[in-house]
Each structure stands twice: as structure tokens, then as C-alpha cells.
Lab assay of single mutants.
Amino acid sequence: DEIHIHFNGVTIEFRGLTEEAKKALEEAIKRGASEEELKELARRLIK
């Protein structure tokens, strides 16, 4: 299970995320999180 985020022309790929983690990332994107914020969020979620 993986998710691809297209962000300002950059694709960020995450693997092994739970549904909750995906929802958290989607919410962050909707509120306009920066690419760095998304990566940091993903790091926290994957652990």
C-alpha cells in the first residue's frame, strides 16, 4: 500500500501507511502544508 503526493511538480512517495496516516497527510495537504512539513509528518507517521 503506497501513496503518491504530487506537490509543486515533485512526487513524494510513501509506502506502508495506515489509513489514519493517509488521512493525516491528506488533511495536511488540504490546509496547505509545505513539502518539508509533509515529509516530517510522514516520518512521524511511519515510525
Rank of each mutant, 00 (worst) to 15 (best):
V10A: 05
F14A: 11
R15K: 15
L25K: 00
H6T: 02
N8T: 02
L41F: 03
G32W: 04
A21H: 13
S34I: 04
E2V: 15
K47V: 14
H4R: 05
R15A: 15
A42S: 03
E20V: 08
R43V: 13
T18G: 11
I3Y: 15
I46L: 08
E27I: 08
R44N: 11
I29S: 03
E13S: 10
L25A: 02
E40F: 04
A28M: 14
A24F: 11
K30W: 10
F14I: 15
I12Q: 00
K39R: 12
A33P: 03
K39L: 15
A21M: 14
L17A: 06
L41G: 00
D1Y: 14
K23Q: 12
I3D: 09
E20M: 06
E2L: 10
F7N: 03
K22H: 07
R44C: 11
E26Y: 14
H4K: 14
R44I: 13
L41D: 00
A33H: 05
I29E: 01
K30P: 01
R44M: 12
R31M: 10
I3S: 07
E37M: 12
I12G: 01
A33Y: 08
G16I: 02
I29D: 01
E27L: 11
E35Y: 13
L38S: 00
I46S: 10
E27F: 07
E13N: 03
E37C: 06
G9D: 08
E19Q: 07
E2I: 15
R15F: 15
A24T: 12
K30H: 10
D1N: 12
L17W: 02
L45W: 08
A42E: 03
E27S: 10
F7A: 05
R31V: 09
A33F: 10
A28Q: 04
L17Y: 02
I5D: 01
R43H: 14
T18H: 06
A28C: 08
L17S: 01
G9R: 00
N8G: 11
L45E: 02
G16N: 13
T11M: 04
G32H: 06
I5N: 01
L41M: 09
G16E: 14
G9E: 04
L41H: 02
L38G: 00
E36P: 07
H4I: 13
H6C: 10
V10S: 08
G32F: 07
R44A: 12
E40D: 11
L38I: 10
G32S: 05
L38M: 08
K39W: 15
K30D: 09
E40Q: 06
L25E: 00
L45Y: 08
K39G: 09
E35H: 11
I3R: 05
G9F: 00
G16T: 05
I3A: 06
K39N: 07
G32I: 04
A21E: 14
G9H: 01
A33D: 09
I12Y: 02
K22Q: 12
L38F: 13
V10E: 09
H4A: 02
E37A: 08
A33C: 10
A28R: 04
A42R: 00
H4D: 04
N8S: 02
K22M: 09
S34C: 06
I29V: 07
L17H: 01
F7K: 04
I12C: 03
K30G: 10
L45F: 09
L41E: 02
I12P: 01
H6S: 06
